[in-house]
Design a protein around this nucleic acid. Structure first.
Lengths: 144, 144
DNA sequence: ATCAAATTTGTAATTATTACAAAATGTTTG
DNA sequence: CAAACATTTTGTAATAATTACAAATTTGAT
């Protein structure tokens, strides 16, 4: 937890109890959770945590570039403590979001740029959609 | 309008009056409009058009691959009749969405793939965010 | 023209997110 | 340490996009 505190301070964020809990959660759950998922999971240890605080906190993290805010899912924003350039894949069946790193997609680094033509870039998101191998398998069995 | 009808038929969509109006709108307005924008613009000529029909129609178009449904904007879905591989840029200030074609971003074609690793891809979206040149100019003037 | 199927419509429900003001907590200064 | 001030959190209520649903309308085939 001391590490989480230093992590926040390094990004210029005052480490309140709530902020540390959220940051720690994101650092230890690399599942691209939604606001509701974070809320449900933290609620056990922090019954007083409010949704508004969560929204405020996640927005702050995003503005200070501590986390990413993914728009791959039309229904909910999703959050990611990994700020390295990487793409995402969402399964249309189970909804799970997978990471795609540069070793699987060599062109990836080329699209993560500061500038394209005369446009200055502050955020890049590369989103893939499809059916993940697990759900493909299940569908094959069902359709027999 | 006859062309729009054939366009829909080509994609296996029955050309009702409403569907033709929406398709024609998208073919002649390459501005990545939201549902509300389409609704407002069509409402003059079609006062009975309902939002539900719009949502149904746009979902159908998306499923039949006649149009793209963009998730670049967190607030609203946006629609695009250009189904060629291309990226998008949204200005954080004015909200306008620009196209980025392969000539401006040579790596673009490389990320539009049918497969990445063992993942089968059905949809790719490459979204950039930043401040567009027009808004940058305005901000410079304001901050003097 | 009739009938069945497909489509459209309006209303109501759902759900994610934001606004806001009061309460709580943390920080600074005398 | 205590008073004064700033920041953060909280709960509730408002907003806004999207979906559910059943009745009404339109379409296409016979």
């Amino acid at each position: 937890m001391q590490k989480t505190k230093e992590y926040l301070l390094k990004y210029g964020i005052r480490p309140s109890v709530q902020r540390m809990a959220v940051m720690h959660y994101l650092l230890t759950h690399r599942t691209h959770p939604t606001v509701d998922e974070i809320y449900s999971d933290l609620h056990g240890d922090m019954p007083t945590l409010s949704k508004t605080t969560l929204y405020n906190t996640l927005k702050l993290f995003y503005e200070k570039n501590v986390t990413l805010m993914l728009t791959i899912d039309e229904q909910n924003a999703r959050f990611d403590a990994c700020v390295e350039p990487h793409a995402h894949f969402q399964c249309e069946v189970c909804g799970k979001v997978y990471d795609i790193m540069a070793d699987e997609l060599p062109e990836l680094n080329g699209v993560y740029r500061k500038q394209v033509g005369d446009l200055m870039i502050s955020d890049v998101q590369l989103n893939y959609r499809g059916v993940c191998p697990i759900c493909q398998k299940k569908e094959t069995i069902t359709n027999q």
